[in-house]
Design a protein around this nucleic acid. Sequence first.
DNA 1: AGCCAGGGTCTGC
DNA 2: GCAGACCATGGC
Length: 272
Amino acid sequence: MKIFEIPDGLLIKELNCFDLDLTLDCGQAFRWRKNDAGCWHGVAFGKALDICQTGEGLMLFHVSADEFEDIWRSYFDLDRDYSGLCDTFCADSNLKSAIGLFPGIRVLRQEPWETLCSFIISQNNNIPRIKGIVERLCADFGEPLISDDFTFPCAEKIAKLSIEDLAPVRAGFRSKYIIDAAQKVANGKVSLSGLNSKPINEARNELIRIKGVGAKVAECTLLYGCGRSEAFPVDVWVKRVMSELYPDGLPDCAEGFQGIAQQYLFHWRRQQ
DNA sequence: AGCCAGGGTCTGC
DNA sequence: GCAGACCATGGC
């Protein structure tokens, strides 16, 4: 990976196993949209970003080298050796097929609270609608940014709201879960900051104390929001893959990185 | 129109 | 411990 400062921002070259479209549109993050020029726009860690991928590399617009180091390098998981990881996964023929069709999917490192809240919203829901609910939540309760965007509202802000306050967001029965999560995070009954380092089962048990958080939402929070690559979310699609191809569990080559393997399998199975 | 969605809770056996 | 109803909403 090589980083170049250009007049408009930064150019990242020599990235292997990085496909921006797949990464931002594979159901792990819900705040990115692609414009007519093929460029993605989104908000994470309180910053708006315009980013696109061309034959030249990855272009991050209006981003300083400092901001890249502080936020985006980690967010896009640029320091992980996906090439080596995929070589390991390819010991399994199904994973090899999935990776062959959709190389370049990366698991983002998102903010814990946003991830937790987003995946509470995801329950029994479809991706287009999840995006709509998250967008309204941010527009109604996030902090405005210069770019006409909004930050993801912090837990302390949501914790003070009532179910009626959340009605315009149209989250349905999930509203009470969002508020319970916000209150437990805001008052310290659940500590998100420790989840990246605790033994994974302790982290799981802490998360499922929140109403509306079961195994699936907990695994998604740990994988996408706490950098726990061994977390393994099983949704309806992955459940199909497991029953059809892995009745005895994932192969050994996925050990320690079950969540990343899951991301390839999820996308593979969902694209029929 | 009806089925389904990156599920979880609550109830009843 | 486990199956089944139920939950709000809207995309397809």
